[in-house]
Design a protein around this nucleic acid. Sequence first.
DNA 1: ATTAAATTGTGATATTTATCACACCACCCA
DNA 2: TGGGTGGTGTGATAAATATCACAATTTAAT
Lengths: 212, 212
Amino acid sequence: MLSIEQLKHLFPDWETGLYEAVLEHAELKEAYAGEILLKKGQNIKSAMLVVEGTIKLYQEDEDGGEYFMYHLNPGEACAVTLVCNYHHEQSQVLAKAITDIKFLAIPVTYMEKWLNEFKSWHYFVIKTYRSRYEELLKTIHEVAFKNMDERLEFYIKKQVDQFGVTVKLTHQEIANDLNTSREVISRLLKKMEHNGWIKMNRNAFDWIKKQN
Amino acid sequence: MLSIEQLKHLFPDWETGLYEAVLEHAELKEAYAGEILLKKGQNIKSAMLVVEGTIKLYQEDEDGGEYFMYHLNPGEACAVTLVCNYHHEQSQVLAKAITDIKFLAIPVTYMEKWLNEFKSWHYFVIKTYRSRYEELLKTIHEVAFKNMDERLEFYIKKQVDQFGVTVKLTHQEIANDLNTSREVISRLLKKMEHNGWIKMNRNAFDWIKKQN
DNA sequence: ATTAAATTGTGATATTTATCACACCACCCA
DNA sequence: TGGGTGGTGTGATAAATATCACAATTTAAT
């Protein structure tokens, strides 16, 4: 299990009692890069708080499509699984580990109990919802108003914020995340290369566009 | 102002003290159908709780585009304006009254105070975020995966749930809400008419598609 | 080293949506 | 009663994206 110091570092705004409750009742789980942690329609039995690594959240279509929404990093929680006061909730999203990860799984029963006991848990839940709500708004803005070239740029910038200027993704992976086809991404990346925005390599490229 | 009975009817899960606090510190405001209540980039100075009428929430583009996300009805709150713990927040959305409305405006300072004082306020905020978060997920699902014909059907169904089977909107208004052009909507509605899904009138049409 | 698999490049074509142009119709109202 | 005005219908065309086909290249595997 984690030490209380590690918890404090990840979740600095919590009360002492909450750290203790988490240590007592949450399970520390692990998953490998590439594992699917949650699928659309799956029942939610525990909340996920990221301890180590990165999770990607997707909207998932009935027939195989995916649309990338946002990353979850250590100290953040998956809003979808914070089903306080709701029972038998089904997941509306797809969650994938994209690095090896560790996360805390908190059974739904405690999530509700803690709402009554810990003010800092209450704040944490609200903060989580608010920040994810804002991410979704950005996603809608992109997909509703922008053409693929701009959406690709937005997508790459999110990658760069997460992992640095070298984007280690194949064209196919990017196409999947944006729910388009590999050819479209290849052609758009080629155009970006011509414009001097990226420097291409195999299985990766560098984002070198100057801002402004 | 409202009576405490009216408040109880709108917000049945609140504590007595919260009703009193709202009566004391919230302002009851009115607006006419068509008025814009909140614009993208505008500073948020108070939360909006709907008392009467219906508000439409949009994602707003820099150059005039709109994308309809969801309706807010009496007893519901605008998640964007519930900026507990956040200061100087700017609105990411556009909110329009589409009927004459009444709403309670709660200054940000009290929203934060009440988080400490009233458990039911805390729950209300979380519930609001959760339900709006789910609406946004549905919106992303439509716009990311569906073609315009399916998005139009989804849109019409939301209208029907709100106002009944007679949809009193011009093709232009629908086109604006879906960020497309009037011609596209006209042609798709014509197709729906041929399929026997709708019965067209001037400035309105009836949704008569049988489910399944 | 040679084959197999994965990745990328690119033309051709189809589909979807956007845009332009203009006709027609219903309704209001001076 | 005869224009306006706003709403709708529809063809032609352009632009964006999807799909298909296949070549070329790099990496991985035996």
